Structures are given as C-alpha cells and as structure tokens.
Simulated scan of single mutants.
Amino acid sequence: MSSHTEQSEASAETDVTVIGLGPMGRALAAAFVGAGLGTTVWNRTPGREGDLAARGAAVAPSPEAAAAASPLTVVCVVDYDASDAVLRRAAVTAALKGRTVVNLSADTPDRARDTARWADAHGVRYLDGAIMTPTPTIGTPHAVLLVSGPAALHEAHRPVLQALGGTHTHLGEDPGRAAAYDIALLDVFWTAMAGWTHALAVAEAEGVGARELAAFAGGIAAILPPLFTETAAETAEGRFPGDGNPLTSAASSMAHIVHTSEAHGIDAGVMRAAEGWARRAIGLGHGGDGFTRVAEVIARR
C-alpha cells in the first residue's frame, strides 16, 4: 500500500485488528506487524498510527470499520469504561458479531465477566486477558500474557496471539480469572513500590541517600521470591508458622517504622494499616503465627 489514504480505505480483511494505540497498544500492533501479520489499527485520537502505517498496517477510518476488518480484534485501552465506549456502540457491536474480541485492557474481574456476558448476548466471541510485563517485552521472549475464557477459542487464535511473544497461559473458562491474577499481582507490585518510595523518604530524612539505600535494598528484594513460594505452600495447607518472625515481633518492627516516620512528619498511613492488620490478628490469638495469617484475618466478613 502506497499511501495513508489507501490504507484507511482498504477493504481486504487482515489477520488482526488492534483498537487503542497508547504505548502498550502500539507495542501490540508493532509486534503483529513485525511478525508479518496483516494488521488493522484504530485509535480514538488520530495521529498515533504514523509509523505503524508506514510499516504496512491498515488504518481504519472508524471503530466499526476496524472491527469488521479482521476475525480477531485485540483491545488495549485504559480501562473497561473506555473499551465499553467503543465496543458497545451499536455499529461496532454489529460488526463484531461472529468475530472474536480479546480484551487486554486493565480492570476488575467483575467488569471482565460483565463484558463476557455482553459479548455472549450479542454473538461476539470473547477472551479476557492481562499483560503482566512492560511495553518493551512485547514481541520478545520476555512477554507474559494471561488469558481466560473458552479454551477452544484461545487455541484457535493462539497462532496470531503468539506474535506478541513470551508465554501465554490460559487460566480457565471463567472470563474474570485473568483480571483476578492481574489485580492480585499488581497489588504486590504497587504495595512494594509504595514501601520503596516511603523508605526513600524516611532514609532521606535520616540523612541516607537513595543510592546508598539501594545498595542494600536489593538484598531485601532477593528474600521475597523464595518467601512467596514457601508461604504460598504453607497458606494453601492452612499453616502459618511464625517460628522465625512471629506477628508480635512484626508488629513491634512496624511500630518503630511508624514512630520514625511520623517523627519526621512523614505520612505513615500504609505502615499504620499493616500494623493494624497485625494487631488485629494478635488480638484474635494469632500472635505466634507468621505474617501470612493476616490474609485470613482481613478476609473475614
């Protein structure tokens, strides 16, 4: 194709459509194009498709044209409010009938299940997914994608989705399962990042530079992967051993962090919450247990 106009008006069916050209959406589209797949793209705000068009992607003039262009539409926008605003337009819904949508937008498990119900009611085949690695990993062996929904549908589209690289794990028929993993794993990430930024603030207040702290923080980070594996096995078995670090000791340590932070005028809300969980578990008679007992305590209704 020799021009943007020709690409926009192209009627030949392509292998895959990408709706949403934010950083991740552009990476997805680039991986498809790089794998030699016929790729159609559309973005609500024009102007982000330039280099993709130059590399051979067809640029759809409307979301309904994008939906009609391929048997498979991959959606990657900020959340399900944004994806609903596109997919649930009458013309787009009609164009998608009998086709497959893979929604890689981030949102909650309930929203994923609601979208799956909407798709089923309108004759749209639906898979929900989550991208667990950063934009630069897309199209490389380091990408990690989670998918949930009908297994046969995932297998049917695996050859195209494989262009995104890395590993593709099908988590089961429940369309909300990928989002559940995503929420839980992002919980780990953002809680860790909150702890790190808070630690930087406390360290600076005590005259410790960020680089100085980072030299030792790596050791703390290295403890976590084996600890995750060990405590997951224990939790699955209903055991919460606290031989090395019981909740009573953990709560005392957290109180020291709260005291030091607030002495410098630094908000200690996150650590106060964690200490509160530990104190609640202790109050229920679990003071000799390990910290993972907290998961059971805070989940009680």
Rank of each mutant, 00 (worst) to 15 (best):
E237P: 07
V86T: 08
I138N: 10
V294N: 01
R44D: 14
D81Q: 13
L224M: 13
L104F: 15
T292D: 01
P109K: 05
S70I: 11
L96E: 06
A82C: 05
T108D: 06
E13D: 13
R88G: 04
A268K: 04
D174N: 08
V297S: 03
E13M: 14
H170D: 00
E6H: 11
P134C: 09
L87N: 02
T73P: 06
A250H: 14
A274E: 03
I183T: 07
T17G: 08
V33N: 07
E237G: 12
R48C: 12
A85S: 14
G176I: 01
A54H: 08
D110C: 00
A60C: 12
R48E: 12
A85Y: 05
T191G: 14
V188C: 11
A54D: 11
G287I: 03
A85C: 04
G195D: 02
L96S: 04
I138Y: 13
A199N: 00
A210V: 00
A116M: 11
S2D: 12
P241S: 09
A180T: 11
V16K: 10
I138F: 11
A53V: 13
T231A: 03
A163H: 10
T133L: 08
T248C: 07
L145I: 14
P136H: 09
T17W: 03
A263Y: 03
A10I: 05
P175K: 00
G285Y: 02
G242P: 13
V77Q: 07
R293A: 02
E206C: 01
